[in-house]
């Protein structure tokens, strides 16, 4: 029961979706099934929030090291959730002024919009900006032209890095008949022919891999949904 029903569910929904792709009359089945999938994806965010609370509360109650930060997580979570769910500061929608709850949850002047703009936005974007520093440090410490493969990689990286800046303009003087030697053209041709060829092979490889994995799931050989319960 605990493993048969889930396997049946996965197989049946998979077969229905594949049939719906080939039989247009059954297209609405596919729409309904994928729509449920989309709704479940929404529920997954609630699950994620619930899991976060659970883990942080455990950290706090057992006074594990760093429990103070767990408290910061919980408080910021609670504030954001409250102002968002209660739509604090959100004006009603244009055509429904008589329904105070009808406005958009992320209205610019709302509390949720304010936190998005001034807390979520700078924090997440600066986290990614940090990577610029680490990639520089890695370039200095780790990128060694030890063999021909590494030389090809670094050589291409040099050409693309320089060709994508104003430095490429220094080669503008090369006559038109030899325009393929201009740095920006070298970059364009590397991307259009060599990179495209290699990435197309990777894309085809991934497609075969995905198809094989999907078939294993649909045939009930792989059952990742049983996992840890």
């Amino acid at each position: 029961m605990k493993s048969t029903v889930p396997t049946l569910i996965a197989t049946i929904v998979g077969v229905v979706l594949i049939v719906a792709f080939f039989v247009p009359a059954t297209q609405s089945w596919s729409e309904t099934a994928v729509d449920w999938f989309n709704i479940l994806a929404g529920v997954a965010f609630i699950l994620g929030g619930g899991n976060l609370i659970k883990v942080q509360l455990e950290t706090i109650s057992s006074r594990r090291p760093g429990w103070g930060y767990a408290l910061v997580i919980l408080v910021s979570f609670a504030i954001m959730l409250t102002v968002g769910l209660l739509k604090i500061g959100v004006p009603p929608a244009e055509q429904y002024p008589n329904h105070p709850w009808s406005g958009e949850y992320d209205a610019p002047a709302s509390a949720f919009g304010w936190i998005f703009e001034n807390v979520y936005n700078p924090l997440t974007s600066t986290m990614f900006a940090l990577l610029a520093f680490y990639v520089a440090s890695a370039a200095f410490r780790a990128f060694r032209a030890k063999n021909i493969e590494a030389m090809l990689l670094l050589g291409t990286a040099f050409i693309v890095l320089l060709g994508n800046t104003a430095i490429a303009r220094l080669t503008d003087g090369i006559p038109d008949s030899l325009s393929f030697l201009r740095l920006d053209q070298v970059v364009a041709n590397t991307m259009s022919y060599i990179t495209t060829g290699a990435f197309r092979a990777i894309t085809i490889g991934i497609a075969i891999g995905v198809a094989a994995t999907a078939l294993r799931v649909l045939l009930g050989i792989d059952r990742p949904y049983l996992g840890r319960t």
Binding site: G42, F45, I73, F77, L85, Y105, F116, L123
Partner: peptide, 21 residues
Amino acid sequence: ESVVIGVSAAYWMVVAFWSTL
């Protein structure tokens, strides 16, 4: 870092709640 964890989780919950659920 703790603030970003808390705020992101709540952000996605609110978005999922009002836009989909």
